[in-house]
């Protein structure tokens, strides 16, 4: 929830927009709407894979990091976690409340925070975005970091060894790989449709 001072705060004027809201207030509203977006993506079941419906929630986490950058991305995921703990049904399939953090999937939900941070650090390393860098970012942050947070908690809760828990989670890898692909495509189509959104990226070149 910090008010990260972006390295290039003057991007609004560069894109021909009127001088917009104060950076702090704008960052807060971006983090808030992205937390809400990830919550909404968690309610719409998109991939009916096996018995458990797979939502697009983790794609939202990847997009939070890729679009908002590391600090605001992580801040929005922290907001999502705090409000879930406060009792709102914001996680996948309308789950919510403190129960989310008492169960075996607690690590995955908490992993959204460092996950979005890692995605943002890699994807927004510099402008313009590169397809290979975006792909690396969503794979490392959106899958690697989230699994690295989620699997140990799950292993401990279920009394499994780490490889056993990892093997059990392999079931979700195809869905997550699909979501990572979508996240890369969506990020790059957004960079073309609405480049002003990526205001946190340090711009080496003046033109978009």
């Amino acid at each position: 929830m910090g008010t990260h001072q972006s390295p290039a705060p003057a991007t609004e004027s560069a894109s021909g927009r009127p001088a917009a809201a104060a950076p702090a207030v704008r960052s807060i509203s971006e983090m808030a709407v992205f937390a809400a977006l990830v919550a909404v993506l968690g309610q719409v079941a998109a991939i009916p894979l096996g018995p458990v419906p797979i939502t697009l929630q983790t794609m939202g986490v990847m997009l939070a990091g890729a679009v908002l950058g590391p600090w605001r991305g992580a801040g929005s995921m922290l907001l999502l976690n705090v409000l879930t703990a406060a009792g709102l049904p914001l996680m996948a399939q309308g789950s919510g409340g403190l129960g989310v953090f008492a169960g075996p999937t607690a690590g995955f939900a908490l992993g959204f925070v460092p996950g979005a941070l890692a995605v943002g650090l890699i994807v927004q390393h510099r402008w313009p975005l590169r397809g290979w860098r975006t792909a690396a970012g969503v794979l490392v942050g959106g899958i690697g970091v989230i699994y690295a947070c989620g699997i140990p908690v799950m292993a401990w809760q279920l009394g499994l060894s780490l490889p056993e828990a990892a093997a059990a989670n392999a079931l979700f890898l195809p869905g997550d790989a699909l979501k990572a692909t979508f996240a890369v495509l969506v990020t790059h189509s957004l960079a073309r449709a609405y480049p002003a959104a990526f205001r946190g990226v340090s711009r080496r070149r003046a033109t978009l």
């Binding site: 917009a20 809201a21 709407v33 993506l41 998109a46 697009l56 495509l185 969506v186 957004l190 959104a197």
Partner: peptide
């Protein structure tokens, strides 16, 4: 699934514009 991804880009644009408007309204 592909439709869901196709829907995400406009959803993202609307979300970000909503964030901008909210920020301006607060400012």
């Amino acid at each position: 699934p592909a439709a869901a991804a196709a829907m995400t880009t406009p959803l993202l644009v609307m979300t970000l514009q909503h964030a901008e408007e909210t920020g301006e309204a607060l400012a």
